[in-house]
Nucleic acid binder design. Structure first.
Lengths: 200, 200
DNA sequence: AAATCTATCTTGACAGTGTCAAAATTGCGT
DNA sequence: ACGCAATTTTGACACTGTCAAGATAGATTT
């Protein structure tokens, strides 16, 4: 009575672990995710998870990787929707920040030191992030051609800096730096002004 | 034979702890600072530090607080130096990023989730950060008057967004997100173009 | 259907963490 | 010299991640 893959004792521990871990992280923050509590929640012994993920780092990498897929999907969907180039970009800026705030713990795994510096980003995580970044740069190139983003520099460079700006904005909020949440939408608007070539 | 304050057994444990902790953090990262190893390094028992800092969080807050003092000093010194307004601003952008990269672990404590979100920022830390931020906003106001920064919004808002941009840039590098360090100075220059009102 | 194989899971163990409570030390003012 | 209070230590507890060895049981082969 297996679903598809060969699942012996549990059913699909791998998947259960990912889902449960994501939930715990979302609700209680990544620092209160312990492998032991996770195993317990899923109803399995302490070390069972280690047969599906090499270690905690690997589990977190897998979660972050999902995040990149979601983010890339958001980007692609928004590009497909036929907006004005300008509208499309503005929507993405909002969507980017919104995603970061709504999935703040995942976002932190995707772009934070936990995995990239303190931890050990898996190859597939690196690949996923690279791919998402590439999709972004491609769009930037188009936005430059459409004169939405400045042509004063290469797509890579413009992509890097606009990304950095959005990232910084998102981070300040999700990391709990004392900023009034009411300022957010104003800040986003101002940020857009900074980034667009049609800055008045 | 005490220096000033009443130091009984150690000499000045408080200071020693701060210095030693800062060093460990700088050399090995904040995640490999343990209260026990720290105590050991300083040559004192496991729990001795707890009579000088309520807990690990408090110790880290104290370190972060020092960071804010340093950063504010950089800002004030740069303002005092009589540069052109534009030159002054550009120098500060460079100095900001440079500080972040050079003191990356302290920077993370100052502006990261460790203290602000996962932890519990002390009142004096909050005060220090607020004061530094205030100094920044004051300068922004002046820079707006001098037409270096855009007047399209309030000093607060412009201050927040430019800060966020610099923060994002710094974070990407210090968190080990895969960016080529060789791109840094180019990125800084492009960032300046984005931020200044005289963007071409 | 029985035996074997192998993926999966569990038990036991170790070294490490932060931090509390209670006891011990020790310098200072009297 | 004595006691007070600041300072430090010892012992303990509940956690953490993860390794090594054994148990279990579905799948495969005979």
């Amino acid at each position: 009575m297996s679903t598809l893959k060969t699942q012996y004792h549990h059913g699909d521990l791998n998947k259960s672990l990912l889902e449960s871990a994501s939930l715990i992280i979302k609700e209680q923050g990544v620092e209160s995710l312990s492998m032991r509590k996770l195993a317990d929640t899923v109803g399995v012994s302490r070390t069972a998870p280690y047969h599906h993920f090499k270690d905690k780092n690997a589990l977190l990498c897998a979660i972050a990787e999902q995040g990149f897929c979601e983010q890339e999907k958001i980007l692609r969907d928004l590009r497909r929707e036929k907006n004005t180039a300008e509208e499309g970009f503005k929507k993405y800026v909002h969507a980017y920040v919104e995603y970061a705030l709504q999935h703040n713990e995942t976002y932190d795994l995707m772009y934070g030191r936990t995995l990239w510096k303190a931890g050990n980003p898996s190859d597939s995580l690196k690949a996923a992030s690279k791919q998402t970044f590439k999709a972004w740069i491609d769009w930037v190139e188009e936005l430059q051609e459409q004169n939405i983003l400045p042509n004063s520099n290469t797509p890579l460079r413009i992509g890097q800096t606009t990304w950095a700006s959005l990232h910084g904005l998102a981070r300040l909020f999700i990391d709990g730096i004392y900023l009034d949440k009411g300022d957010l939408s104003d800040m986003i608007e101002q940020m857009i002004k900074n980034l667009c070539s049609t800055s008045t």
